[in-house]
């Protein structure tokens, strides 16, 4: 197997995730796109870990999974709050950050 197989797979998933973050309006779908990005990074970490013969990549892949879980928890709580206040989960309606 080539190293590049896995890295390319990671790159493609990453770019699809980036597209999703930019294109999607629904907050839940944006969070899903972020999960794609995080998973692509994990594939890269494990591929490099195998290539270099070290276990550091495994450690950090696990840390990323834990951070992702925390992020989804907080993110969905925010989506819930947003829905409760506005009856909508469209990100384009959130313009409090407008300067």
């Amino acid at each position: 197997m080539l190293v590049n197989q896995f890295l390319m797979l990671g790159a493609i998933l990453f770019c699809i995730g980036v597209y999703g973050v930019i294109a999607r309006k629904n907050a839940v779908l944006v969070l899903m796109s972020i999960e794609l990005i995080l998973n692509s990074v994990n594939i890269n970490l494990l591929a490099f870990s195998l290539r270099n013969g070290s276990t550091d990549g495994h450690t950090f892949a696990l840390y990323i999974i834990a951070v992702a879980a925390a992020e989804v928890g907080v993110g969905l709580a925010m989506v819930l709050l947003m829905y409760r206040n506005r009856r909508s989960v469209g990100l384009d309606e959130l313009s409090e950050m407008k300067g």
Binding site: V21, R24, V30, S95, K98, G99
Partner: peptide, 18 residues
Amino acid sequence: ALQPVQSGKVNQYGALLF
């Protein structure tokens, strides 16, 4: 001047960032 670029739209921020 900095005001209009702060549109408040998260997606636009994402597009600029990436």
